[in-house]
Amino acid sequence: MMVDALLAAAILAVALATVAARGTFTATALFIGYGLLLAFAWVRLGAMDVALTEAAIGAGLSGALLLGAAARMRPHRVALDRAPGRAMTAAIGLGCAGVTAALAAAILLLPDPALSLAPQVAAQIGTTGLGNPVAAVLMSFRAVDTLLESAVLVLAVIAAWSLAPKGGWGGPPGLVQPQAQGGPLALLARLLPPVGILVAVHILWIGKDAPGGKFQAAAILAAMWMLAWMAGRTAAPPVSARWLRLVVAAGPALFIAIGLLGWLAEGAFLAYPPGLALPIIMVVEIVLTASIAVALALLVIGPPGRRA
């Protein structure tokens, strides 16, 4: 309880500091700390899968994305809205306090005993062959959500690429990274990727029985690719590359195809034939990992820039 109180206080302090921070670099650094502390909160809440995702995506990839954006936007003057005046700020603060109070009241008034779908999951998890209940929900009981989410990533890549400036289309995404000569970046870009790829494969495979799975594994793989890219050891492929587009779309496409086959064979979209659920789920997981990893990395790297 003491640990929880201290952790909650720390998260609250970092959140307040993020909102109050002057510069975007300071705010982003604080936000990365916020994401990591939040991952601890998820551990305390018994949600290990969420903790891993929060640390990898909420803190890691978001942090890299926002630090990069802060650096790119610094030399430019952005058209700013007028900051609200003192009275308006007070009114906004009052309104936000009201939102917090309403949410807090909702938390305190939750029904007792708590509603839960855990018994249903426990009763049906045997049909999936999986041991990790969260993976069973993601890949079987609510597989449509996961399918739509993987499609959202493809749409996000298309939307981000469509922001390419005039003359940038078809070129490599993001800014061209100079090759790092010496220093920690060059060293880590050589040392970490083999280890990271191994860890990612482990997390993907263990995800069927323990916390882990495709999102966490994909985030690690994306980070390894970005590390090599940032150090200038590998050039990002041009957005016109057909294989790149195929990899990004393969996971959701396979998932949809499996869903349609389930419709033909079992009479329901995404229904798995009994006994074959586990192999089907693992194949979809592995292909989705590749697609999600490439999509996440492309989203952090950003749209193609102007060609020099």
């Binding site: 809440l45 018994g46 949600a47 899968d49 969420v50 995702t53 929060e54 995506i57 909420g58 990839l61 978001s62 939750l110 708590a114 509603l115 839960s116 779908l117 855990a118 018994p119 999951v121 426990a122 009763a123 209940p133 969260v134 069973a136 929900v137 993601l138 009981f141 609510r142 959500d145 996961t146 989410e149 959202v152 990533l153 996000a156 999102f215 999600i292 996440l296 989203l299």
Partner: peptide, 26 residues
């Protein structure tokens, strides 16, 4: 609060939160 059936927390909201984090990132 929905911890039951030997799970430390209700897995259904957990899966939805996981999905939510990825969509929020996108």
């Amino acid at each position: 609060r929905g911890a039951a059936a030997g799970f430390a927390a209700d897995p259904v909201p957990q899966a939805i939160i996981l999905t939510g984090i990825v969509v929020a990132f996108a």
